[in-house]
Nucleic acid binder design. Sequence first.
DNA 1: TCTGGGGTCCTAGGACCC
DNA 2: TCTGGGGTCCTAGGACCC
Length: 434
Amino acid sequence: MLALIDGNNFYVSCERVFCPRLQHQPVVVLSNNDGCVIARSNEAKALGIRMGVPWFQVRHLEAQAGLVALSANFELYGDLSDRMMSLAAGLGHRQEIYSIDECFVDLAGIRGDLMQRSHKLRQRILQWVGLPTSIGLGTTKTLAKLANHIAKTAEHDPGHYPSAYAQVCNLGGLPQRELKGLLAATPVDDVWGVGRRLAVQLREAGVQTALGLQRLDPVVARKCGSVVLERTVMELQGIPCMPLESQPSARREIACTRSFAEPVMALRGLQEAVTDFASRAAEKLRYQKNQACQVLVFVRTSPFRREDGQHSCSVVVSLRQPTSDSAAIVRAALNGLQAIFQPGYPYARAGVMLLDLVAAEQLQQALPLGDELTSEKRTRLMQTIDGINRLYGRNAIHLGSAGLLSQGRGWSMRQQRRTPGYTTRWDDLPVVNA
DNA sequence: TCTGGGGTCCTAGGACCC
DNA sequence: TCTGGGGTCCTAGGACCC
């Protein structure tokens, strides 16, 4: 048996922990650049605000309906996530942290009443961290996901599923008839792994609900979709196809991409942005103790501004040898940029991706050429830079081509509604007035 | 005026080889 | 008119997830 513990409206709930007046109010959290809605409170959902909708399209609800919008504060969410995860781990022997707000826990060998234990965990996370969660239990990941979805939906929409399933739902302990009823009440789109495109295809084939999908012949599922859909069908039937992964596997690629606050026309501005993105990507690379063999850089104009000329281009630059050295990675990215940049376009976005990653220790070192620092010295230099930035904040020290922070950088991210780092910065600690 | 970011996996099709 | 067969590897693009 597996449990899926999932934070309800996670980012909004994190904001509410330190700002209780946001309870019972419609609240949304916005993506980088304050562009799109990426989290909604139940009250905001009730206003009809869809996931991913551009902020400017719902902005009028601020005045009309008291909607509160906040810039994403990932530092806060990450810290509260760590706290939630360490409590959730106590439910079983093995845990897979699947995303910032959800984890699977293997309940094999756990004795006692699983429902009761799950309710206790919910209470503990709510009391100790301040976050509301839902817990779903099932014999496969897909069934645990579905159980979680039912637990969440039943809580705020008892018309859809009986409220007996609210907060904690165990599909494993259910009589067949009851399970059938729940599957029949679940639209096929709500099954994990069925996105927009597949849902359309399935509906055309006459599969409307999770029950219909469960009854599909896996061979037919494979023809209709791919091996992915086949696995989903089998998992719905209770046959595990996706093992729990308690060891996080190393990333296969690393990306740092951003939209700009304002369109950037000049090569100089793009060079600054690309330097910044490449440096950050290199930092992530060193953190996971990898080196990259290739650097991809791309720029593109806004696809939403049809009236402007459109230009979108990317290039992969191979490195002379695998490296995690910021300077080498930035140099490669800037060379790539030079090759794809075309003057006269209002660029809206750029990014750097590191590809073909290899473990840092199993590498052959090339001989240093000319006056290059030896690789040992470079490694120490990078460690020093990372240390300084950890201590004094991101970009305390950075490469010159990133430009000066004090000068107006049109490409810098817009974040006008960000809450403080309540749990991660000394200066931002909440003050309690007794 | 204003539309996120970071991932994974799968497949089809082209290039190439014998 | 008629144009092999089988295999591997790589990449671009699609679909999905949060």
